[in-house]
């Protein structure tokens, strides 16, 4: 039932577009790579991380995945390198050039 958006690239003909331009399904933006918008990325220093998760809610791009109450590696395919998480970490477990 969900739309196969792989068929909806910018070269799609009019017959291939979904009716009314609706997208049945959810979260298809994952297919869109916003990680290339910046070169600077935060670095996660796992040893310093206390798993307080304070970095998680500040990310505008949902790039800090959480599973079983623990954060995982940055999603660099989508991270735009805003640096907010660097300042949110009380333990210096995230670093990024130019952000203190």
């Amino acid at each position: 039932m969900a739309a196969d958006i792989s068929k909806l690239g910018v070269k799609a003909g009019w017959k291939d577009l979904t009716e009314g331009m609706v997208i049945p399904g959810a979260g298809t933006s994952r297919e869109f790579n916003t990680g290339e918008w910046s070169t600077d990325k935060p670095e996660f220093i796992e040893e310093k991380c206390k798993q307080c998760l304070l970095c998680v809610p500040v990310c505008p791009d949902s790039c800090i995945p959480v599973a079983d109450y623990k954060r995982g590696a940055f999603d660099y395919e989508h991270c735009k390198g805003c640096g907010i998480c660097v300042k949110a970490c009380p333990f210096g477990a995230i670093t990024m050039e130019g952000v203190n």
Binding site: A2, V10, W14, L17, E19, V22, I23, P24
Partner: peptide
Amino acid sequence: CPMAVGPYSITDYYMEAKRNQAE
């Protein structure tokens, strides 16, 4: 199945969208 309705359409899609509607 959730659904999203009312997208922003970039120029690449707009004309095809209108043709699809005309159908």
